[in-house]
Amino acid sequence: MVSVRPVAADDKEAWLKLFRDYVAFYKASVPEEVIGQTWHRLLNGDDNMRALIAVDDSGKAVGIAALVFHRSTWSPTWYCYLEDLFVAGEARGHGVGKALIEATYAEADRRGATRTYWATQESNATARELYDRIGTLTDFLQYRR
């Protein structure tokens, strides 16, 4: 069993560990200063950002999600971007990712967001199996500067 709730100040160490593992999973690097700033933003709801944490029945944090709410030029409503979603390796395949996405959908609905979306690497086959069941793959590609 897993429960999903908004992060609280007491979750800082668990969130930091999971976020660092998430960054490592994607073979990326994020400066510690930015990680600290991100935690502060998520904890305080700055910039329309929210964070969720998944906790197993033993009380261990096993997953995180970061939500960014923003306006759209195509809609009078808000959209929800699920910017970060990570499940600890030992908890994968046990419904944690699904629970985090369902909690994201619930928060988006509560806030009146008419679209919830996210991205992943094309090679992330395990996550994509879940995403194919609970979302719709679009034909858009992401470009960056």
Rank of each mutant, 00 (worst) to 15 (best):
A9M: 08
S3C: 07
A127T: 05
K27W: 01
A8S: 11
R50A: 15
R145F: 12
L43E: 08
G63P: 08
I134V: 15
K98W: 02
D132Q: 08
A14C: 00
L18K: 11
S75E: 02
A106H: 07
F25R: 08
R110D: 14
R71G: 06
E33S: 09
V30W: 01
G36Y: 05
F86W: 12
K17R: 15
A88I: 00
G45A: 11
L16P: 00
A99W: 04
Q121Y: 08
P31T: 11
A51I: 11
R50F: 12
P6D: 14
L42Y: 07
E83R: 06
R41E: 15
N44R: 13
K17F: 03
M49F: 03
P6W: 04
S29C: 11
F25H: 12
F19Q: 01
S75G: 09
R144Y: 01
E13F: 02
A24I: 06
P6T: 12
K27E: 15
A106I: 00
R144S: 11
D84F: 04
D46L: 12
A61R: 11
Y79W: 14
F69A: 05
S3L: 12
N44T: 13
V4M: 04
V2H: 02
R111T: 08
G93V: 10
A54D: 05
L18I: 03
D46Y: 14
Y105M: 07
S58R: 14
V68D: 06
V55Q: 13
L43H: 01
V7E: 03
R144L: 01
V62A: 13
E102G: 01
M49T: 06
R71A: 02
R145N: 04
D139I: 00
E107L: 14
S75L: 05
R5I: 00
R144E: 11
I101F: 10
A51P: 10
P6I: 08
A28F: 13
V2M: 07
Y131A: 08
G59W: 05
G97E: 04
F69Y: 14
W74Y: 11
A99T: 02
L100E: 09
D46I: 02
